[in-house]
Amino acid sequence: MPDIWPGLITAADLTVIDHLGIGCQYITEDDVSSDIVGVFDAQYQREDAGNPGIMSSTPMLFVRLADLPVDPEADQGHVVVNGVEYRVIEPEKDGQGGCRLILHNTKYL
Rank of each mutant, 00 (worst) to 15 (best):
E29F: 05
S57V: 12
D48Q: 04
E92I: 14
S57Y: 11
V84H: 05
P2T: 08
C99V: 14
P6Q: 09
N82K: 11
I54E: 11
T15I: 04
L20P: 00
E85R: 13
I102V: 15
Y26I: 02
Y26C: 01
D75G: 00
V88L: 11
T58P: 00
E92H: 07
D31N: 14
I22S: 14
M55F: 15
D18M: 08
A12K: 13
P59S: 04
E29T: 00
I102H: 02
T106E: 10
L14V: 04
S34H: 12
H19M: 12
I22M: 13
K107G: 10
A12D: 08
I27Q: 11
P6H: 10
F40K: 05
L14T: 10
M55Q: 13
P52Y: 07
L14D: 14
A66P: 01
Q43V: 08
V63M: 04
L109S: 07
L20K: 14
C99Q: 05
Q43K: 12
Y44H: 15
D41I: 05
Q76P: 00
P52N: 03
D41S: 11
V80L: 10
V37D: 07
Y26Q: 04
G38C: 00
G38R: 03
K93W: 02
Q96P: 00
Q25Y: 10
V80N: 07
R100H: 14
T58W: 06
P69I: 00
M60S: 05
V88A: 06
G50R: 12
M1S: 09
C99M: 08
D31S: 13
N105Y: 03
P69Y: 01
A11C: 01
G21R: 10
S34M: 04
E85Q: 13
H78P: 01
T15S: 12
D35P: 01
F40N: 00
R87E: 14
L14A: 12
T10H: 09
V37I: 14
P59V: 02
V70E: 14
